[in-house]
């Protein structure tokens, strides 16, 4: 059986908000290491990979591996009934038909109990190769969100150019063009506000802004975001949170 108690409902609520528009149904794979999810988006050009490590729960118990097939929209509806500060407990039996969710207020004067039906999802599990990326850019998550949102007003796509001079986000569309260049900065008091660029070679790739804007729905989960790029492989956008991560992969657009 699974029993996982999470001190802050907000983590799960924000995580769901960050993936539910890309993925409709997915298996939550539960093992003694924690709860993970891996799913392609409906158009098969983006992949979502979530890990909530066991040590992020207190307590966490999972006797044998379980795949909980969940409709993310349904889970999101149930989680709307949880306050951000509530303590959430997830429970499932071995070979479960239902997932049980309990929301307790901080002072335990209110306990809400929900049961959600599970579904059978036959999901291909893709291997994610260990990759040494040519460019690794870490920047404030809010800055990345702002850039994607602003440039999506200009064009459907953005070209990200990482070089030793900085990282340039550029879009061109019918109404004109625009770009934002970030230089490396170091803010020792607020590391999450720094921008760092690690480069083994310059990389220039173009991506659909629709997807990037969707990925930035994870902004409330982390202060910083890391973009990792190499030529001809999918971009990795990673939000690290306490007790896990949310990663998105996106295939580059092919240049004419």
């Amino acid at each position: 059986m699974l029993e996982a108690r999470l001190a802050q409902a907000a983590v799960l609520k924000k995580t769901l908000d960050a993936i539910k528009e890309l993925v409709t149904d997915a298996n939550f794979d539960c093992s003694d290491g924690g709860i993970s999810l891996q799913a392609m988006d409906n158009s098969h050009v983006a992949l979502v990979s979530l890990l909530l490590r066991a040590d992020g729960f207190e307590p966490y118990r999972c006797d044998r591996n379980l795949a909980l097939g969940i409709n993310l929209n349904s889970l999101s509806k149930v989680l709307r009934s949880a306050q951000n500060e509530d303590i959430i407990t997830l429970k499932a039996a071995d070979d479960p038909d239902n997932l049980s969710l309990t929301f307790e207020s901080q002072n335990q004067d209110r306990i809400s109990e929900y049961e959600m039906k599970l579904m059978d999802i036959d999901q291909e599990h893709l291997g994610i190769p260990e990759t040494a990326y040519a460019a690794v850019i870490t920047m404030p998550a809010a800055e990345f969100q702002r850039i994607c949102r602003d440039l999506s007003g200009i064009s459907e796509s953005v070209t990200i150019d990482a070089s030793k001079d900085g990282v340039k986000f550029a879009s061109a569309g019918d109404i004109g063009n625009g770009s934002v260049t970030l230089k490396q900065t170091h803010n020792p008091e607020e590391p999450a506000l720094s921008t760092s660029i690690e480069l083994s070679e310059s990389v220039t790739l173009t991506f659909s802004l629709k997807y990037l804007v969707n990925f930035t729905k994870a902004t409330p989960l982390a202060g910083a975001v890391t973009l990792q790029m190499s030529n001809d492989v999918p971009l990795l956008v990673e939000y690290k949170m306490e007790g896990g991560y949310l990663r998105y992969y996106l295939a580059p657009k092919i240049q004419d």
């Binding site: 392609m40 158009s43 098969h44 050009v45 983006a46 992949l47 893709l126 291997g127 994610i128 190769p129 260990e130 001809d232 492989v233 999918p234 992969y249 295939a251 580059p252 657009k253 092919i254």
Partner: peptide
Amino acid sequence: PTGQAQMTNFFAAS
């Protein structure tokens, strides 16, 4: 390759 093929190739490479 299309975006789909790029994803498939990359994730199948592991």
